[in-house]
Amino acid sequence: MRFPGTPIGPLDYHRRLPLRLILISSLIFLYLPILTLVAFSFNDSRRNIVWHGFTLKYYQKAFADSELMLAFGNSLSIALFSTLISTVLGTMAGYLLWRFRFGGKTALEGTLAMPIVIPEICMGVAMMAFVARIGWPQDLPWPLNLSAITAAHIAFCFPFAAIVIRARMESFNRQLAEAARDLGATEFQTFRDVVAPHMKPGIVAGALLGFTLSLDDFVITFFTSGPNSITFPVKIYSMVRFSVTPEVNAASTILIILTVALTAIALRIQRRYPIAGV
């Protein structure tokens, strides 16, 4: 292959053949399966092999599937509640770690990251054992039937929120908080008027992160869900066990769109607030 114009500079990695090949194959392996899934959700054929024409009927079918919709509702409720609680907890933990010096702070920061590094399967098994051991009631009316899963989701979402918010506080100029105190503000007023506005992008990012993590979590949820508390990913899994139908494709596409949209919002919010520590 010949490149027209200037010779390849030492840093023009993207113009060298081997690197181009690696880049292209990574993109193919990453995105082609997803694109196929999305495309075949619109395919007018029961089998996912040949393109037969465009249709929306599998979306209609998916939306008409009351079990699938119930699972979708469950997932949204769990994500909403666990996000709310884990964001509050994460904000408090992030503030605590920034504001105070205390014994065992390093240990606490380390422990905080544990749910992130522990293999999800272990978390799942542990949660299942825990729920069974304390005899968490199983057949409660909606939404209490989701409480065990929600608790499990809070446990693994909250560290993400705490870490994002803690990281955000690194760029906070402590003199801002002192200036507020100096002008007569109480500890709470200082938090409300000066610290929280700086934290906000971190809080939003932490919340969106938690929401997407909770929404598409399978492993931990699988171990904590009972027969009357099926979530969307768990439901899709059970559908796939029989065959990959276009309904599954349609349902998955909806999940993808939701997750991508939320991630995009999170990124936008983070970009709108650079490190701004005037």
């Binding site: 003199q175 002192e178 200036a179 100096d182 007569g184 700086h198 520590g277 005037v278």
Partner: peptide, 20 residues
């Protein structure tokens, strides 16, 4: 007496203007 109750005010080295 905590900082918010003292009859003095400080001009910080970094100015510490509230950015928002």
């Amino acid at each position: 007496v905590t900082a918010n109750h003292r009859p003095v005010n400080m001009l910080f080295q970094s100015y510490a203007i509230f950015p928002h």
